[in-house]
């Protein structure tokens, strides 16, 4: 545990949604899986999330929104990362997200979307298998 890289994850709540039960449960589960989790708190703009992701040099940005604003907010985060030339950060999203919206989100650069009922183990496995560095 002493040496070497640890997976670093930024857990972020974009937009105005205040429901952070899911985000906090995931944050704890990732910690318990040995990852370093940076939680930014509520009401983050995509710009703030991307800036924090860069300063913290994270491997993963995990977005959570339950307000239905994911269609605007998630792609914006992916787009800003791309604009800053960052292609080694995995972006995933979770929340009350209808399956109809998945294709659009994935096309925008959200690697995977997790909906209510997903186990934290699934998210952990997904991250371990898909981080880009």
């Amino acid at each position: 545990m002493d040496e070497g890289r640890k997976i670093r994850v930024l857990v972020a709540k974009p937009g105005l949604d205040g429901h952070d039960r899911g985000a906090k449960v995931i944050a704890r589960a990732l910690r318990d899986a040995g990852m370093e989790v940076i939680y930014t708190g509520l009401r983050q703009t995509p710009e703030q999330i991307v800036a924090a992701a860069i300063q913290e040099d994270v491997d993963v940005v995990a977005l959570s929104s339950l307000s239905g604003a994911h269609g605007y907010l998630f792609p914006k985060v992916a787009k800003l990362l791309k604009e800053r030339g960052i292609d080694d950060v995995l972006v995933i999203g979770g929340g009350v997200i209808p399956e109809d919206d998945f294709p659009e989100l994935k096309a925008a650069g959200i690697a995977e979307v997790f909906t209510p009922g997903t186990s934290t183990a699934e998210v952990i496995d997904y991250i371990r298998e898909h981080i880009k560095r």
Binding site: M1, R31, D32, G34, M35, I38, T40, A51, A52, E56
Partner: peptide, 17 residues
């Protein structure tokens, strides 16, 4: 677990931009 929950940034996020 060797993991950590790093929450200090929460109170400093105003500076992020």
């Amino acid at each position: 677990s060797g993991g950590a929950l790093l929450g200090d940034r929460l109170r400093m996020q105003r500076h992020v931009l």
